[in-house]
Amino acid sequence: MEIVLPVVIGSLYAMAIYMLLRRSLVKLLIGLGLLSHASNLLIFTAAGLTRSKAPVIPLAADQLRPPHADPLPQALILTAIVISFGVTAFALALAYRAYRSVNTDDLDQMKTTDA
């Protein structure tokens, strides 16, 4: 899998960047979603992949014996997932509000609205 995931991550980044560069606000938000998938996978992969068990100490044991997955990147990604949900929601609300105010979701037309 180490050989496939980088390609997946690269593709997700490429697609995310392309969507972020669209003029339509909604497309940009979808790009944001793809970007967070890509980044989370990046952290996950860069820390090393293992098919072994989760970083949970079995009830019978006193400590976790290797091999096991690295818990630290998981903790990072977990918060990142939830935060990116918050960001997406906020961005959606912002998009809605902006659309309501200026009646367009074309970012190029929005640039003149604060004049």
Binding site: V82, F85, G86, A89, L92, A93, Y96
Partner: peptide, 16 residues
């Protein structure tokens, strides 16, 4: 907190 935030967002979007 997570429960409250998520519901706040969903309800707000729905009621708008």
């Amino acid at each position: 907190t997570v429960w409250g935030v998520t519901l706040t967002i969903i309800f707000a979007l729905e009621e708008v």
